[in-house]
Design a protein around this nucleic acid. Structure first.
Length: 479
RNA sequence: GGCCCCAUCGUCUAGUGGCCUAGGACAUCACCCUCUCAAGGUGGAGGCACGGGUUCGAAUCCCGUUGGGGCUGCCA
């Protein structure tokens, strides 16, 4: 989508600050961002990506959630051109629209309580509001809500870039509430008013909003006269994105699923990997490419190629992507990015030791959170020996000899990976063992585990004194 | 229940009537490489939900069935 007709593309991401930014929201934001960016790339210089905070529900909104959403977007590298606009600061607009809808006969006051409606419609074939107050001429009061007067006949069609034309009979749309009894607008009203006011011409959002879209189209038509002097007389184009679902194929939920973007940051995922993976959930470039930078995504992304079916957010694949992105980092950057994770692990960190390990660790982790776990033994006074591994080593023949000979030769060897390896090779020859077998007891003594980073780099980083000490204490196992 | 959406390997996808004996990636299995573990390499298993049409020809178009999901709030 290069442009909407001849007008500059104006898209928006409109989160509600009732929780952190989750991956589904992040993907929606990303697609909006890519569309605007691509439009600019193709010469639509005024294309704009707008951030709008939908905080009309005073009960649930918290400023700290807004902060969280904004910082998550920034972390991901998703930047907006305009805003953030806050709906809570634009009440006049919605009140004016609500008044207009009432005065033009498109809305009416309703004093029914939830219980009233439920008792009347119990057992009815058409649940939902029964239009009870539609012609009663109820006056505005502290207990009344404003409802939209949905046409009884005809049908409403929404043109969707992803799904094509979607149609619903108006009689199946209930007379929905557009303004609460406290005077604040509901989502459908505020959303339409702002889209008009901000001249949004392309709405990209999650599929859960598809049913709302019919109501919005109705509101839009009814409001046309109010805004007849403005440019926004054409309804925006819509693109409803397939939902992101959990393993049970249900919509990702903030309460049920652990999907906060900030959590992924905490766990040591890289924003570039997140972006790349998220972009692929519901879209593909058409060939077999999977790894793409933001610039490449911008160039290749096409809303029209977005899938219709829901996509499972697979953390396994995300981890794989993250590992690839980590391995592509320079040692310097990787080392730098690891620092906060060492802090978090609370180890007695030593930069000189770490420097020796950087490149070999980089090849072996999938998240930055894995980093301290892999080299913790370097920063501990003594290591905790894994019991299962110890049992294996004790069962293995010649373990004691290996440890004894290693301590002897390491005591006087030049402290260098190649030298140490050759020393071990000599021991192997003497005991008629393969290095793979012989290194195990030493590794356990030094790191406490049987798996870990390459042994000789680890020894060099640990230092001679600590190495000898750990070998000596391992020798105690055999007494 | 009603309205709406959706349906290619376990997962994400390529595929837009013949190039499909359905391609790639993650996960999985085997082997190779190897100081353990990774990474890398090679190979394997694994899919067009089902039933009808349309057509010389369908994963691709149409209808139905089944299955899944979303919405159904004075939330967004």
């Amino acid at each position: 989508m290069d442009s909407i007709g001849d007008k500059p593309v104006r898209v928006r991401f409109a989160p509600s600050p009732t929780g952190y930014l989750h991956v589904g929201g992040a993907r929606t934001a990303l697609y909006n961002f890519l569309v605007a960016r691509k439009a600019k790339l193709n010469g639509d210089e005024k294309a704009s990506f707008i951030l709008r905070i939908e905080d009309t529900d005073a009960e649930r909104n918290r400023p700290e959630w807004t902060e969280g959403i904004i910082s998550s977007l920034k972390w991901l590298g998703i930047d907006w051109d305009e805003g953030p606009y806050f709906q809570s600061q634009r009440s006049d607009l919605y009140a004016k629209a609500a008044d207009f809808l009432f005065n033009s006969g498109n809305a009416y006051w309703c004093s029914c309580t939830r219980e009233d409606v439920d008792s009347r419609t119990k057992g009815s074939a058409t649940p939902g509001y029964d239009r009870y107050c539609r012609e009663r001429g109820v006056a505005k009061s502290q207990n009344s809500v404003l409802r939209f007067k949905v046409p009884l006949n005809g049908s409403t069609t929404v043109n969707d870039l992803v799904r094509g034309a979607v149609n619903v009979e108006n009689k199946n749309i209930e007379d929905f509430v557009i303004q609460k009894s406290d005077g604040s607008p509901l989502f459908v009203l505020a959303n339409v008013v702002d889209d008009i006011d901000l001249s949004i011409n392309l709405v990209i959002r999650g599929e859960e909003h598809l049913p709302n879209t019919f109501k919005m189209a109705l509101i839009f038509d009814a409001l046309r006269a109010l805004y007849s002097n403005s440019e926004a007389t054409d309804s925006p184009t819509y693109a409803h994105l397939p939902l992101l679902v959990n393993e049970k194929r249900q919509k990702l939920s903030k309460r049920r699923d652990r999907v906060a973007v900030e959590d992924f940051k905490e766990q040591g995922f890289l924003p570039q990997a997140m972006i790349n993976y998220l972009a692929l959930l519901g879209w593909g470039p058409g060939d077999d490419r999977e790894f793409m930078s933001l610039d490449e995504l911008t160039e290749l992304f096409e809303l029209e190629k977005v899938n219709k079916a829901p996509a499972f957010f697979d953390e396994k694949k995300l981890r794989h992507f993250n590992g690839v992105y980590i391995r592509n980092l320079s040692d310097e950057v990787f080392s730098e990015l690891s620092m906060p994770f060492f802090d978090k692990a609370g180890l007695r960190f030593d930069l000189e030791k770490w420097k020796i390990m950087v490149s070999v660790v980089k090849e072996r982790v999938e998240t930055l959170d894995d980093v301290p776990k892999m080299v913790d033994f370097l920063f501990l006074e003594s290591v905790e020996i894994d019991e299962n591994s110890k049992a294996k080593v004790l069962n293995q023949e010649k373990s004691a000899e290996i440890l004894f000979l290693a301590r002897e030769s390491f005591g006087k060897a030049t402290w260098d990976t190649d030298v140490l390896k050759n020393q071990m090779l000599a021991i192997c020859e003497k005991l008629d063992l393969k290095l793979g077998k012989a290194q195990a007891p030493v590794r356990l003594a030094i790191t406490g585990r049987l798996i870990g980073p390459p042994l000789f780099e680890a020894l060099v980083a640990l230092g001679r004194d600590a190495t000898i000490r750990r070998l000596t204490s391992a020798l105690e196992w055999f007494k």
